[in-house]
Simulated assay, not measured.
Amino acid sequence: MDKSMIKGIAVGGLAMVVLGASGVTGYRALTQPKFADVVAVKEINETVVTPRERCETVAVQRTAPVKDQNRIAGTVVGGLAGGLLGSAVGNGTGKTVATLAGAAAGGYAGNQVQKNMQQKDVVTTSEQRCKTVNEKSQKLVGYNVTYRLDGKDGTVRTSFKPGATLPVKDGEVVTTPPAPAAKS
Rank of each mutant, 00 (worst) to 15 (best):
G74C: 03
V173H: 05
P178M: 11
V173N: 10
L166E: 05
I6V: 15
T99A: 15
A103P: 10
P177W: 09
L80N: 01
Q114A: 09
T125E: 12
C130R: 07
G82I: 12
G106D: 10
V174N: 14
V38R: 13
G163H: 08
R28D: 13
G12Q: 02
R54M: 10
V174R: 03
I44F: 03
D2K: 07
M5Q: 11
K131C: 01
S137L: 02
L100I: 15
A81R: 08
K7I: 15
S137G: 10
T75Y: 01
E172Q: 15
K3N: 00
A59S: 10
K169C: 00
G82W: 08
G13H: 04
G151E: 00
K136W: 01
D68E: 10
S184Y: 03
A40S: 14
T93E: 14
V66A: 13
L84Y: 05
K136L: 04
T63H: 08
V122P: 01
V97P: 00
G82T: 05
P51K: 09
Q119D: 13
V39F: 06
K115L: 12
C55H: 07
S126R: 14
V66T: 14
G94T: 14
T25S: 01
L84W: 07
V58S: 00
E46S: 06
M1N: 04
A81M: 10
G78E: 01
T146K: 12
L166P: 06
N91E: 06
V141L: 06
V60F: 00
I72K: 05
K169V: 05
Q61W: 08
V97N: 06
K152Y: 05
T96Y: 07
E53R: 14
Q138C: 03
Q61F: 14
T63N: 11
Y143T: 11
